[in-house]
């Protein structure tokens, strides 16, 4: 294939990666922004979402669309409840002390991972996409008669991949509206800015924390349900998204949602493009280098504010 069609493919694949990465990173960033918790177990909530999606799909059976829609609701919900419980039973008890929280979430990481290995096993398992219409994309070439359209072999995508991107955009827009326009969002932002004052205005900050931790994990799980028809569910699949999500929130500025979204789209797209034209490893090397530069020259991230 020539450069043009190749670039289109890379952009589509990159958009799918970017969409899912945005959901994961926004979850991580939300939790850090409001609770000041660095959640090392975030990748495992992602993995759990994928495994639960498989469980729901194989338990329900029937038409893939039905079981997929159920998975899309049930998996994030269960993961959210589990995370909220972990917040109340573990993180709250250690008072969100920064160092202890990191140790505790590492503990949660291994508990979830090993429990999944014991129950679900070491195999990677697929989930059928609800629909998977394949279509080709036309390209142009210059001939003696001027520009003409043709369908290069291999240039195409599936309706499901486009759906993943659209779904992620919709979720992010809804989340944005919820945070900026609703009472719950106001409570969340007030808690983020000043815990004590939030309490003095009747905001139950413990409940806000549990809900934010749950929503953050549910976003990761949602990303996993969306990607699992493309990538398969496996008990070790949480590691790479966690690394990428950390890269994204550091570049975007910890706790800054707009920064996180921009950085996730950038990292997701460039990861897709570099992987296709060069090698996946090079993509990781470059993004890690970028993190190093950001940490050296702009530690608050590209969109973050300097520490008060």
């Amino acid at each position: 294939m020539e450069f043009g069609p190749n670039l289109i493919i890379a952009l589509i694949e990159g958009s799918v990666q970017a969409a899912v990465l945005t959901l994961i990173a926004v979850g991580l960033s939300l939790v850090f922004g409001v609770m000041r918790v660095v959640n090392v177990a975030h990748g495992e909530f992602f993995m759990l979402g994928a495994v639960l999606a498989w469980a729901v799909a194989s338990f329900v059976g029937g038409h893939p669309a039905v079981s997929f829609i159920l998975a899309l609701i049930i998996a994030p919900l269960l993961v959210g409840i589990l995370a909220a419980a972990a917040d109340i039973l573990i993180l709250k008890r250690i008072n969100y002390d920064p160092e202890n929280t990191i140790v505790a979430t590492i503990g949660i990481l291994y508990i979830i991972q090993q429990m999944t290995l014991i129950t679900y096993g070491p195999d990677a398992r697929p989930v059928e996409p609800p629909f998977n219409h394949r279509f080709s994309i036309p390209w142009f070439e210059y001939t003696e008669q001027g520009y003409s359209m043709y369908w290069p072999w291999g240039l195409g995508t599936t309706s499901y991949k486009l759906f993943v991107v659209a779904a992620a955009v919709a979720v992010i827009v809804l989340l944005w509206l919820a945070i900026s326009r609703t009472k719950a969002g106001l409570m969340m932002r007030a808690t983020q800015l000043d815990r004590d004052m939030a309490q003095s205005f009747g905001i139950p900050v413990d409940r806000v924390n549990a809900i934010v931790f749950g929503v953050g994990a549910a976003l990761a799980a949602l990303g996993a349900v969306l990607i699992v028809p493309i990538q398969q569910a496996h008990y070790l699949m949480g590691g790479e998204p966690l690394l990428l999500a950390f890269i994204v929130v550091i570049i975007g500025g910890l706790g800054s949602l707009p920064g996180t979204i921009v950085a996730a789209v950038f990292i997701g797209l460039s990861d897709g493009i570099i992987s296709i034209f060069f090698a996946p490893t090079l993509a990781k090397i470059l993004s890690t280098l970028l993190v190093a530069f950001v940490l050296i020259f702009r530690p608050q991230g590209l969109f973050g504010k300097a520490v008060r």
């Binding site: 009472k183 106001l186 932002r189 800015l193 000043d194 205005f201 009747g202 905001i203």
Partner: peptide, 19 residues
């Protein structure tokens, strides 16, 4: 004062109205 400094004036008052 300890206002919710990044919220708007209106949102600060709405925080009071929550109660």
């Amino acid at each position: 004062r300890r206002l919710f400094s990044e919220l708007t004036v209106e949102e600060n008052i709405e925080a009071g109205l929550l109660v």
